[in-house]
Amino acid sequence: MPVPAYSFLLLSGVLFTMGAVGFLVRRNPLVVFMCIELMLNAVNLAFVAISRYLNSLDGVIFAFLVITVAAAEVVVGIAIIVQVYRAGRPMDVDDLDLMKE
């Protein structure tokens, strides 16, 4: 195998870190969601790489289930964001603290 497994895992770690930084720094809820997708994708890459280099298929199945769960999560999350937008609140996660009170 020409490409070592480490390179895939390293790329996965870098992508996950970038997603985590974006999740913490960005304030638009839609962009925060995209950063979550970035992190989920990075984990999928690690799953598939490990599954490939250990000659197993379990990681591929896990990644498939993660894709499904992410799709469900996006559907519900975007429905909530649209509701917040319709209520006329600002698109800023720092101002969405209604549940705190």
Binding site: S51, A63, F64, I67, V74, I78
Partner: peptide, 25 residues
């Protein structure tokens, strides 16, 4: 990584369905 099925699922579900939802919104 020899995961052809996941390749198709990634293109259809993520790059297709999920991102169309994002762009529409």
């Amino acid at each position: 990584l020899n995961a052809q099925f996941l390749f198709a699922a990634q293109v259809i579900v993520y790059a297709g369905a999920v991102m169309v939802l994002f762009v529409f919104i």
